Computed example of a mutant assay.
Amino acid sequence: MNRNARRLLVVIAAAAAALLVWAVAAPLAGVDLTVPQGDTDLTVGPVLVIAAALAAGLAGWGLLALLERATARGTRIWTIVAVVFLAVSLLGPLGAAGAAAVASLLCMHLAVGAVVITGLARR
């Protein structure tokens, strides 16, 4: 399998991992995944979960490809940037409505981050 096909599968797997966490949390466990968004509340549904995971994965892939072309240490630099980005992204779910929602959203972020970082950084 070529590198681009493998990386595309990593991005898809990250979205699937996030969707799996959502499916366990929202429909099965009944967690209300609501986060404040300006003056309104945003309910995190499956489309939003998939779109956000795909966006993060594709952005990571794009940055990795750019860094690989620009420097000999592209993968190492990308991994550091990706870990920092994941750490900052973990601040977002902290405003969710309730501890169960916070925990579920944190798990989604960690699932996507773990799949993307380990999958894309692999040579």
Rank of each mutant, 00 (worst) to 15 (best):
V81S: 10
L8A: 09
G92Y: 00
L48W: 11
A65Q: 13
R69P: 00
R122T: 07
A70I: 10
V47N: 01
T75L: 07
G74C: 03
P93W: 10
L91Q: 12
G30Q: 10
L110F: 12
A99G: 04
G62Q: 06
L9N: 10
V81A: 15
L42Q: 05
A53M: 00
W78M: 13
I80D: 04
V31Q: 00
V44K: 09
A5I: 02
P36H: 02
A87H: 11
S104V: 01
W61F: 07
L67N: 09
V31E: 08
A101R: 11
V21L: 01
H109Y: 00
G38S: 11
V84R: 03
V31R: 03
C107R: 06
A111K: 02
A26F: 01
L106R: 11
L86S: 09
L94I: 13
R73F: 11
L33I: 08
T75V: 15
A111D: 02
A52Q: 08
A53K: 00
S89Q: 13
L28E: 05
M108I: 08
R7N: 08
A26N: 01
A114D: 05
T34S: 11
D32Y: 07
A53V: 04
H109F: 05
R6F: 08
A82F: 07
E68V: 10
A114Q: 01
A26D: 15
M108L: 04
L120R: 07
G62P: 03
A70F: 08
A82L: 00
V31Y: 14
P36V: 02
P46A: 12
V115E: 04
D39M: 10
A70V: 12
A14Q: 11
A100Q: 10
W61G: 01
R76N: 08
L20R: 06
H109Q: 15
T71R: 07
L110T: 04
V10A: 04
A23M: 13
A16P: 01
M1Q: 06
P46Q: 08
L106C: 12
G113P: 02
L105Q: 15
L33G: 08
